[in-house]
Amino acid sequence: MKRLLELATVAAFALGLATSAASADDWPNRPVTLIVAAGAGGGTDATARWLAAGLEQKFGQPFNVVNRAEGGGIAGITELSNAKPDGYTLGILFNYAPFRHLGMGNLTSESYTPIAQYNFDFAAVHVKADSQFKTLAKVVEKLKGDPQSIAIGCGAVCPSSWSSAFSKVLIDNGIDIKVLRWVPSAGAAAGLQELVAGGVDILTASVPEAASMLDAGEVRTLAVLAPERLSAFPDVPTAGEQIPDAAPGGVFRALVGPAGLPDEIVDKLEVAMEEIYNSETFQKNMSERGFGLQYRGRDGLLDWMKTHEQDTETVLRAAGAIQ
């Protein structure tokens, strides 16, 4: 029995080697795994599943979404960076730069092969409906005078992607973000609850995340940190309308592979991604749900990833997280 098992194992192994040695030309000839470092049913998951459906159609092989939500996504994107660069493990990357500075892993743009960015969600600043603040400019003014007077919800751990974007605006306006009262929460929903319950005075989160509470009239959005108003939320002013040169910021999502992905595979994927991005279904799905549409090919994405790393470092240095 034991011997039989041994034999079978050896045989299977030999066969496996023989076939997996096939070149990148016939990629993909088996199902592809798409690592999504977020929970099933969340925003990242939704966009990934739309992409997966499109890619499946283009390449005729299943693209299976695998959710790896633990630890705010760090576990998932680390696994993605460590995967074999054979084109059978791809994944969705988002703001990854803070992790390295917070002592988790050593992920940089070098850890991945950029393919295409398909989404950018801008950060926004929200207040409770009956708040004294009517504009973002007023908030910044108040913080300049008395930095301790406002409790700022990060909408996640502090510093979060949202709060970092807001921090950038504050730093540019000469405010020392180290002394501000940043209040963490377990996700945007919990942050909204805090905001409405009067636990924090302002909250940073994306506009779609706050959409329910906006509709309910419980929350007002002071400004979205975007270059221009969002088509899904035309009533929300931009930060630039109130504060000159307010830097836009938020969260990007992109399809990437582990570092060292063969060029032929990246070529195929980049072409497919552009087609999917421009397809009517994808555009409709994204804009109806309030996801920001932004496309960057692999070169543009690489440049953006470097900018993202620099911006993150600036903010974290000002926050005192990097000495």
């Binding site: 299977a12 496996g16 076939t19 997996s20 088996r30 199902p31 795994t33 092989q61 979404v65 695998v66």
Partner: peptide, 15 residues
């Protein structure tokens, strides 16, 4: 249910 159980040696035959 699409649970990504590892394929291991049989990966080449996943299809």
């Amino acid at each position: 249910m699409l649970v990504p159980l590892p394929w291991g040696l049989l990966e080449a035959y996943a299809g």
